[in-house]
Amino acid sequence: MTCKPYIMIFPALLLVVLFSYIPFILTFFNSIHSVSLSGERLGFVGLANYRRLFGNQSFHASLSNTIRFTLFFVPTNITITLLAAVLSNRKGWLANLNQIFFFLPMAVGMSSMLMIIKMMFNPSIGIINRLVGANIQWFNDPNAAMALLVIAGVFLGFGFDFLLFSAALRNVPNDLKEVARINGANGFQIFRHLELPLIAPTLVFIIVTNIKNAMLISAPVLILTEGGPFRSTQTLVYQMYLDGFKSGNYALGSAIAIVVFLLTFAALLILLHLERRRIYYQ
């Protein structure tokens, strides 16, 4: 009878050990060994893999691209989703319609959305260049390719971030806004001095999760740009995929995984710290 609770949590425990703890330890071990193509550890090499990684041009590109992407993506995404939430936080059928449109991207699967974007931005027959009347080489110009990744990132996360912002804005008491309006505050002042401080917890939460997601970006790179042109959009997780799977260099791939882990861990620590202070529960 006393072993019953252990039997009931056994599946969950087995799964965390098998697919979280063991792989984590394996990743760390592989990153300090040389590893054969079949996955066997051949010998202890200490920090040699990390030294190779940090001396590697390709890794420098991945690291700086990942950081660049994060720096471009997070502010762009937050500005647009917050703007959408603020503008559509009103009454009436048109506002309702706007809200539905804003959250619809959430209904589209990631690879579907990326394939739509890939076809829309095709330089020759894609609708974007043809509508704008420009000839932007979205896949062959380093700056345009980075912009394309940011655009894709905004569409992929739009619905969810919008919903979080709208929910937070709806929780701002109406009578407070009424009082401010009677006292002569305009729309922007109400947003800046009343709504913004009250939704700050949600804002912080979205910033941190956005940073984490941006640092882990891989699917848009895989589907849209394949890291090109000239590695200008190659990111950390994409390089991990290239080195770890395409070239079978598990040791180097594992070293990148550890770097990725440390970077996201830092972001998550900040989130947990803020959560412990219950900052986003208001």
């Binding site: 979280s20 063991i22 598990y250 594992s254 995984a257 998550l268």
Partner: peptide, 19 residues
């Protein structure tokens, strides 16, 4: 169990693939 929320699954895919 709950602590594994801290491990991003994308960083574990190489080892998980080998498993």
């Amino acid at each position: 169990i709950v602590a594994t929320m801290l491990l991003p699954s994308d960083a574990l895919i190489i080892a998980n693939f080998m498993t």
